[in-house]
Nucleic acid binder design. Sequence first.
DNA 1: GACCTGCTGCGGGATG
Length: 818
Amino acid sequence: MEDKRLKIGLEYFQKKGWTPFPFQIQAWQDFLDGKSGLLNAPTGSGKTFALWFPALLEYIENHPDTWQKPQNNGIQLIWVTPLRALAQDLQKAMQEVCEVIGLPWQVAVRNGDTDPKTRSAMKRRPPECLITTPETLHILISQKDHKELFQSLSAVVVDEWHELVGNKRGVQVQLALEYMQSINPNRFKRWAVSATIGNLSQAAQTLLGSNLPVHIVKAKVEKEIIIHSVFPEEIEKYPWSGHLGIKLMDQVIEIIEGGRSVLLFTNTRSQTEIWYQKILEARPDWAGWIAMHHGSLDTSVRSWVENALHEGILKLVVCTSSLDLGVDFRPVDRVIQVGSPKGVSRFVQRAGRAGHQPGLPSEIYFVPTNSLELIEVAALRSAIEQEEMESQFTPELPYDVLIQFLVTLAVGDGFDPKVIFPIVKKTSSFTKLSDQEIQWVMDFITKGGASLGSYEDFLKVVEDEDGKYRVKNKKIAMKHRLSMGTIVSDVALKVKFKNGTYLGTVEEYFISKLKTGDRFFFAGRNLELLQVKGLDVFVKVTEKKNSNVVSWMGARMSLSSMLSHKIREIFREYNQGIIRSEEVRKVLPILDLQSKLSIVPDENTFLIESLQSRDGYHLFFYPFEGRMMHELMSALIAYRISQSFPVSLNMAMNDYGFEILSDVPISAEEILEEDIFSLKNIEDDILHCVNESEMSRRKFREIASIAGLVFQGYPGKPTSFKHIQANSSLLFQVFEQYDPDNLLLKQAREEALNQQMEQEMFIQAMKKLNRLEIVVKHPTQFTPFSFPIMVDRLSRTNISSESVEDKVAKILAQMEMD
DNA sequence: GACCTGCTGCGGGATG
């Protein structure tokens, strides 16, 4: 590249007193050469400069005589961020750069928060740089005159690609990119910025589609991560099971005292609530200095907390992953993680939230909530040292997203199938789309498919005189625009005081379990339920103590397979007498007990424990594949057992293994002879289990929403959860009966099976189990491995009126007898 | 003697 083209950029850095990193220069050069690619760089490394600058420089090069004069040449650059909260900071930074180099660009933010006036002003005079979200990008595509808007575009940059690549929002980005490229094939470049993930080049391929070569620019900004484990004083007395970790409160208080500004991450919103309250009880003098942050708190509260953190006013914020991403909090100097982070990437992400000076390591304090979690830290450390991160796979053939996209085009300018499907097939997610599937999708949006033909609402798209497919019905068009996007959430009720003070939201599901007068803990207060009126829940503060903490219906986090494998490695080393870390040394008494009562399985052993208690006959299996995998595995095994032995079975699971409980004896040796782990008929058997389970219905509800079959309601007036559930289960039944080949049904089954388990992982895992040496043990009491699984079942089955404490007490009494 | 889990993200526009 000629020095001339770099000069302006370098001058800017000089003015700032910075030296550009090599990766920044490389990205500039690649961009100006017309390449597309993926930039692998951590937050705070100057990644944004790497891709802003070349866009500016290119513009200057193309407008040599007029670049310093205000003009209206249309949008040059679109910057996509998955998080609205990042937009303002980006805008400010970019505008500042333009000022310094004397380029009169307009930089504007366009997303759901943008007010109508600004929106229409933007239409009259498009900004040169547009900062937006994946969803708004599709909103723009749904507008009639969008082609002009994208005509002048020279590049799209997708920020935080690692957050998008593995989900349907990422599929939307792929479709939008490929579509925009088709409008403007010559100049268009696409770039993304991503943190490190396991399959970086695959992520790049997903971004670039099938006809661009994979190209990755790596920022060699290495950051050391130091993990401090918080050890219980006596591991023998620390719980084998549990998830709260509150027993380590005194040590946590010390850590907070030692920092200036601290983030404490928990895994759940209720954990956040509890820790916040307990810390305040322990240190009432910190009132006003500590705050809480999670997804169910009001946005105004959340942004107040974010600002206060940014300005360094707060001592401590207790939070969930709602603070994983977002604005930089430079004043934060300590990060605490309570409980297993479940994955390497998440842990690294959180450690990095401590804004140190460049070059200094990130430090994170880990607070185990049960003894075995200390082993997970050892596993995390080893994964980080070896730079092994989880992989992200883009969904394959998500028909719901395709249907939504086609209707979006039909709402806008209309589309020609002969033109649009070749474009769709260039995306990684739809490369394998067949002609039959295309025909099915077209039938579905025009004729309602095989079963919905007599309902107007499902005949969305019609062929126009010019051969283009359009949405003619204005109401359908409006409803479609209202429900774009791939995030499906449950209906949230607003929690308020009588005087109208708004506290936050809870899910309909939770409130439906409560009656008037019931108490629960929420937003840091003890509350009593007064009345539910429409979408409002009225409450008052109560003095009476209570233990009912609001629980939200959330996805169940599962240990990543990366971590599970690391844990097995550590067990093998234990069996060989190798102890590499302080954490494992600490847990030795428990591992020793496990080996005494049973064994500690390594990578070559598949342990099954069989024992009897008052509850019945227990079989514990330990595949170490994470909760998600065990959920399906236990269903499969139970199904196969029930084929040969007509018994009623109960299942429970955690990240390490699963339990099958029966009230009549089942011999492990006997069922093993029945080949319960065999790969024969496995696909049919899995299908049977998935169909029987709630899993595919749950998935179908989401799919039906994304495909636009179930209307979520108008803004501020959502349809109730029950209603949506009723509608989608009706559709589910209709399709099952009259349209069994419906691709959305097929998708629901496949998603239930695959999405959360990483592709084909399940069959892989079953294959692996078949290679292992099965060891059946008959311990005389619950082992350190089986106890937590048993407790998990107790807290889940509410059939008995006995409290969990009573049950555990009984079990303990029995154990003493034995 | 051991215990009560379950995240995050987004979102109308044509017409008077």
